[in-house]
């Protein structure tokens, strides 16, 4: 079993697709610098040359347009933002243009671009380096939105995104960069619209988005070790299209659900998933809770930041309340580091 870290998996997917397909190019601020987007573009500029891997001016809006134009001409650009916050500078091209182009031109054009972005957290990332704006994009037709939590899915989804003929927003998380998992050496694709069950359980369903999938996995270990509660942990992987059926099957079995969003709660995945379970899956009689970022600006000081994010402990406590209503307060004693909890498969 070959084990890779998340950034190694992202790098390998990019390298392999660039080797197979000369139309794949990489652009973004710092893609060819010594830090190489946290290692994810390391060596690519040397291997593929400066016309295929190039640094850009700090012009997020125009560079998104450049990627779109290159895609119209048949290239497959990967445009990288080292923080997701920077995508807000490109909303015009993303929302007014790329999401709509196939449609507003009557199907006469294809825009196969991938936008990679990394969500920051901790070390004082603060108000403008920690945002996670995928709920904004989920409201827009014409975009595919992918947020894998495992290195295995990161590679498969990125290759699938590069080969996809539509715009794909590929969301990574800085803390997921510690994750390691089995990653096959050969190129493979992970189809969009299929959720991954990270842990089987019958008592409660925990749906975690991006890094919150790993927090849910940690919470499930605390719950089982200390209370015997078996949580089923689901990583949707693909946010648009969203695999509601896998979540519905789980909730039908457990009758209990917490959605832990990696974003602010209003109009987020929690609202979306609960609504669709009610309206589309016609589920009744289940208990549901939503968790996510505190609805305030992300504070820089760790003294306040620790109250901003859900974590394994707060998720486990909420799950316990739902599974054991009326029982006395429980707080897990187990503490596992982020890098200690990984999904090992089977994939």
């Amino acid at each position: 079993m070959r084990i890779l870290t998340y950034p190694e998996a992202v790098r390998e997917a990019t390298d392999q697709e660039m080797s197979i397909d000369p139309s794949v190019i990489v652009l973004g601020q710092g893609v060819d610098d010594p830090k190489a987007i946290l290692g994810t573009t390391k060596g690519l500029a040397a291997k593929f040359g400066p016309t295929r891997v190039f640094d850009t001016p700090l012009s997020e809006d125009a560079m998104t347009g450049v990627a779109i134009g290159a895609a119209l001409a048949g290239l497959r650009p990967i445009h990288i933002h080292i923080r997701m916050d920077f995508m807000l500078l490109a909303m015009n091209q993303l929302v007014n243009m790329v999401a709509k182009m196939r449609y507003m031109f009557g199907g006469s054009v294809s825009v196969p671009i991938v936008i990679r972005s990394i969500i920051g957290k901790s070390w004082g990332q603060g108000p403008q380096h920690s945002q996670s704006i995928y709920p904004l994009f989920m409201n827009i037709p014409g975009l595919k939105i992918i947020a894998p939590s495992t290195p295995y899915d990161a590679k498969g989804c990125l290759i699938n995104a590069i080969r996809d003929n539509d715009p794909v927003i590929f969301i990574e998380h800085r803390l997921l960069y510690y994750q390691k998992s089995y990653v096959p050496a050969k190129p493979y694709t992970t189809a969009f619209g299929k959720a991954r069950i990270l842990s089987k359980g019958r008592d409660i369903t925990l749906v975690g988005i991006s890094q919150m999938a790993i927090e849910c996995l940690r919470a499930s270990i605390y719950l089982f070790k200390e209370t015997g509660i078996r949580a089923e942990v689901i990583d949707p992987v693909s946010l648009a299209p969203l695999d509601i059926d896998t979540i519905a099957r789980s909730v039908k079995k457990t009758g209990r659900l917490i959605i832990v969003d990696n974003a602010w709660v209003p109009c987020g995945l929690g609202a979306e998933i609960i609504s669709r379970l009610l309206v589309e899956s016609k589920l009744k009689g289940f208990v549901a809770q939503r968790m996510g970022f505190a609805h305030t600006t992300c504070p820089t000081t760790p003294a306040l930041e620790k109250y901003f994010y859900p974590n394994a402990q707060s998720i486990a406590m909420k799950a316990y309340q739902i599974c054991r209503p009326g029982k006395k307060h429980w707080r897990p004693n187990t503490k596992l580091k982020i890098e200690e909890v990984e999904f090992k498969g089977p994939f």
Binding site: I25, V66, I68, A71, L72, A73
Partner: peptide, 25 residues
């Protein structure tokens, strides 16, 4: 004729990106 946009200025970077691809090829 590669299209037109109702948002002022939005096609200029797209045109520029197309030119990048032409040069690349």
């Amino acid at each position: 004729i590669m299209g037109a946009s109702a948002i002022v200025g939005t096609m200029i970077p797209v045109a520029t990106g197309y030119a990048y691809a032409l040069r690349y090829r």
